[in-house]
Structures are given as structure tokens and as C-alpha cells.
Design a protein around this nucleic acid. Structure first.
Lengths: 216, 216
DNA sequence: TAGATTGTTAATCGATTAACAATC
DNA sequence: TAGATTGTTAATCGATTAACAATC
């Protein structure tokens, strides 16, 4: 049913934002929207919106535009937000804990099924009704629960070994908060990096740029 | 002194990763590296590395390559990691707290100088030796401390008003963890978005893709 | 000096934007 | 039907890669 030629990753990265905007329009009671109107709200070109959506099929109707609730549903389907891919968090330190507590995995296509740590003082704690397990139980847990995804909130030094074990255990997706470079190491494994440090430095560069070029 | 024609943002986004890799090389005792060798380690082309660095000046030496400690220093200088731009965090909930505790702002060009919240139960708490202030004191604090940067870890509904107040108070950079769309609203303001939900959905899409195309 | 490797220009590739025929 | 707006092809723009002369 889908056309889906090889979808450029630039398009994929825009999908969640479309999903959010269309969702807000739906909540506000819109029933239809044109690519023109949406482009104004999102700060994109209408052309780009139509090109992007057309990677996945024909969702609009000439002369009318797009049906808002329907389009929301369809983009959600493309992203897979209604899936429940079992997910585990490796590392229950500050970041791991904050993610476990704050991210609504159920609305993002995942289902939090386990949390692991190596620290005896942390093991056994309960976070969101889930007991933190010792990392030694990783393989047994994976055999039983077949998690497809792992969140890495561990130090860079621990990452290579853990990654290897997870891939062996069948994990095909990483949400990587560590500084370890997973990409290109394993074929058919998806890696989404979140590097706070890189993000902050990029901001610093631009602030410096504005700061230095404004006072004259 | 620098050439710095308009640097494409694709290049800027790669700088922190260069900085990390060169830093690790330096720690491992490397004194020189060629673009070829670095390209193999980083999974880029040598051509791209040379092009990228040349946006900022001529850092290498023909026939030799790049001096590792020197290059590390230079990229750090470009990014501004030795700066101490005063920074405030707006919102001391789970995410705000985790960021305050975990991000080493001092090594990223910033200096954490204030934390604000609206919740009476949170105001007055101490996080990293900083007392959480009521949001009502925002303007006074900004007048006195002139923060250039604000981290937004607040709900989307609160964001438009707070952003407006911060820009009026002289903030020129936002590290935006909220779903509010700041970009394009204010000229000469840098915005770095961190959207966990978008990031997770992108991962979900790719896992789904791998999952559906592997079992045949 | 000869070999290595840069800085930089030219060629290619991919992504964005513009244009317009198809059609609701 | 006429007007609006899509889907899609063509044109433009920007970013990546290749090539090579300059030079350490």
C-alpha cells in the first residue's frame, strides 16, 4: 500500500514536528488545512510539505487540502506511535532516572519494560513501578522479554561492552545519551544520538557569534 | 583575524564532534593527525574534514597534517568552550533538575547562575548550591546578572510569556526543551531545540522500518 | 629532494523551491 | 462550472566529494 521509495532522513526528522502541529490543529478543532496555511504556521514552504508527505502516499485532495484528523492519524501510523516496542533503560543515574520518569514512552511507540544498573546501591530501587535490575541479569531478561530498543544512559567507558551484549541479545535500536559512537559499527541497527554537550556547544558558538557581531 | 565567511550550520553542528574526537586523540598521546586518518576514525571523508576546518582558517600544514593539541585548542576557541556566559534555568522540575545536576556547563562555555520556578514547594530548594528563585524575581535578577542564555524546561503553555520576558531582559540564546516554537519569532536570538519526543519518534520510525523489512 | 598532505577549485550529488498540469 | 489546491516534474540551491596544484 505505501509508495515509500527510499525516504531521505531529512524528511523523517521533520515527521514528528508535522505530527505535533497537525495534532494541535486537531485539538483546536480544525477539520481541514492546506499546505499553504500549514507552511505559514510551521515556517516551511508549501512545496516542501507536499514533497515530504508524498514520500508516503497521497494524503490530500486537490482543491481541498488535507483532512486534519485523518492526516494526524496517518503520520502517526508512519511513525509508529501506536506501537509498543518493549524498551529498556541501561543506567539508572540522574539522566536515566529523569528519562524513565519524564518520557511518556507509551505515546511514542515504546513500552518501558526494564531498567538496569551496575551500582549495588541503585539496584532494587523502584522507578515508575519498575525494579532496577543488576546488569548481570541482562541476557536472561532479554531472552524472556525481547526488547527491541535500549536507552543508553551510561558512561562512555561502559558503552562498548554493553552495546555489544545488547546487539547480541537482539536489540535493533539505541537511544544513545552516551558519548560512545555506535553508528556504523553494526549494520541494521538504528541509532538516535542525544548529545547534550554537543547541543550546548553549538548554542555557545551561536551566542558568541551574536554577541561579538552586535556591539558595533 | 579569522576568515569565517558565512559558516553553514551543517559545519557548526559537526564542530563539537570534532572537538571530542581530537580531545580523545590528545588524551591518548597523539601529537599529529592527518585528515585521512581522522576521517577513518570518525566515519567522514577527508575532504569534508578539510573543507569544514577551512571555514575557520588554515590549521594544518602540508605534508604533515594537523597538530593535535593545537587543533583541539583552536576548535575549542571557535566554539567558545572557555567562555562563561551566565546561564539560567527556567523550570526546576525533573528535567530542569537533572540538567542542573548533570551538565558540566563550565566546560561548555556557560556558567550556571540562577534557577527559577513558579511552584511554591520548589522555590527555596537548593540545587548545586543555587537556591531556586520565584519566577517573579526574573527581571530583577536579569538586570543584575545579565544572563545571555536561558534553559527552558517548562510546559509549552508557560513558554510564550516567559520567552517574551527573557528576550526583553536581554537573553539572546535559548536551550529549548519545551515544545514551544521559538525560532523565527525573534531576530538575533539563537535557539537550540532538544525535543525528546521528536527524537524518540524518529527512532521508532527506524526500528519499525528495520523490523518490518527483516522478517522475509 | 621526494613524499605526504594540505588548501582550494571543480564536479557531483541531494535537498529545497518553483512551476504547472491534473483534478476535486 | 470555476476556483482552489494537490501531486509531480523541472529548476535552483547548497552541501559533499573528487581532484590537483601548492608547499611543507
Amino acid at each position: 500500500m505505501p509508495k515509500r521509495k527510499n525516504v531521505p532522513s531529512s524528511v523523517i526528522r521533520r515527521l514528528p514536528r508535522y505530527y505535533r502541529f497537525i495534532g494541535e490543529l486537531e485539538k483546536s478543532g480544525f477539520s481541514r488545512i492546506s499546505s499553504k496555511e500549514l507552511s505559514l504556521r510551521m515556517g516551511l514552504t508549501a512545496s516542501q510539505i507536499r514533497q515530504d508527505l508524498n514520500c508516503f502516499g497521497e494524503f490530500g485532495q486537490q482543491g481541498y487540502g488535507y483532512n486534519v484528523p485523518q492526516l494526524h492519524e496517518q503520520i502517526g501510523g508512519i511513525l509508529g506511535v501506536a506501537k509498543h516496542y518493549p524498551l529498556i533503560i541501561i543506567g539508572a543515574g540522574n539522566i536515566g532516572r529523569a528519562i524513565a520518569l519524564n518520557i511518556d514512552f507509551e505515546s511514542l511507540g515504546f513500552s518501558l519494560s526494564g531498567i538496569f544498573d551496575i551500582q549495588p546501591s541503585i539496584i532494587g530501587q523502584r522507578i515508575k513501578n519498575i525494579t532496577v535490575r543488576p546488569i548481570t541479569e541482562l541476557e536472561d531478561f532479554c531472552n524472556e522479554n525481547k526488547p527491541k530498543t535500549a536507552v543508553l544512559t551510561i558512561p562512555q567507558t561502559a558503552a562498548p561492552d554493553i552495546t555489544e551484549r545488547l546487539v547480541s541479545a537482539g536489540v535493533i535500536g539505541f537511544w544513545n545519551f552516551s558519548h560512545y559512537d555506535i553508528s556504523n559499527r553494526y549494520p541494521n541497527v538504528a541509532v538516535e544520538n542525544v548529545h547534550f554537550g554537543d547541543s550546548a556547544m553549538t548554542l555557545c558558538y551561536r551566542i558568541k557569534d551574536i554577541d561579538e557581531n552586535s556591539d558595533k
